[in-house]
């Protein structure tokens, strides 16, 4: 039934209208779409239909969205994009830490959703294909360990470079504070202290690479959740 070469997306949402709008948008952009209206069906399809991306609404009637994320993650590495409302901040963070790849706050633009899907798929590409990253006037060559703004090299401290590298490797995808800390600082004894260091590092990095550090365009803050490296300006 599925055409070869087409990306397969599983939509999990109990609201019929949301599924309908998602399906219409995705199909018109050339994706194959499967639907699940509850958690049980979601878990079944997540394995049996081999989707390339799963879009999961956290507010399901039968199961906890964070639980579903965890259970899917136990069985597969399929990228998961969660849909949540603004008030569910802690659920959102919990889902991201449980292995979800990104989130969209309802209501969201169709364009935003498509960008997120592209971003999480990018993550699946082999390492070599994304060693060169460019956005706006910023270009980073991971193979060469070089960072340039306006074609002029920028000198970064090892921590700043490590942080930028993590963001580049996950470009377009949200990285939670916890995920970044785990990647850069091995010891997580004093989380508060580490978070403070992270904020300082982000601030310094912005001073070096952002055109206007007061209005960051590359390294975006996801309030209370983490940071995201912008992929298109």
């Amino acid at each position: 039934m599925a055409e070869p070469g087409k990306m397969r997306i599983l939509i999990v949402a109990d609201e019929r209208t949301i599924r309908r709008f998602l399906k219409a948008t995705l199909v018109s952009h050339g994706y194959d779409v499967f639907e699940a209206a509850n958690g049980v069906a979601a878990l079944k399809y997540a394995v049996s239909s081999h989707p390339d991306v799963i879009i999961l609404d956290l507010g399901l009637p039968d199961m906890d969205g964070v639980d579903i994320t965890r259970q899917i993650r136990e069985r597969s590495k399929t990228p998961i994009i969660i849909l949540s409302v603004r008030e569910d901040e802690s659920d959102k963070i919990a889902a991201l830490d449980a292995g979800a790849d990104d989130y969209l706050t309802k209501p969201f633009h169709a364009g935003e959703m498509l960008a997120r899907i592209r971003a999480v798929m990018r993550r699946l590409l082999p390492q070599s294909e994304k060693s060169l990253f460019t956005v706006g006037k910023l270009s980073i060559d991971l193979a060469q360990h070089s960072v340039e703004v306006n074609s002029r090299p920028v000198h970064l401290t090892p921590t700043e470079y490590a942080l930028l590298k993590v963001l580049v490797l996950n470009a377009g995808k949200i990285m939670t504070h916890g995920q970044i800390l785990k990647e850069i600082w091995d010891k997580t004894e004093d989380v508060e202290e580490a978070l403070h260091l992270l904020r300082v590092t982000v601030s310094n990095l912005r001073n070096k690479i952002e055109p206007d550090p007061d209005m960051p365009a590359y390294i975006l803050t996801e309030p209370c959740v983490g940071y995201r490296l912008c992929t298109d300006i």
Partner: peptide, 27 residues
């Protein structure tokens, strides 16, 4: 939580990005 005020303001401005595009904002 401890926050950088500049970051809070930056994130707020990002949210209004579209509306601010045509405006001159002095920081």
């Amino acid at each position: 939580k401890p926050c950088e005020l500049r970051d809070v303001i930056g994130a707020s401005l990002h949210l209004l990005k579209d509306k601010l595009e045509k405006r001159n904002i002095q920081m």
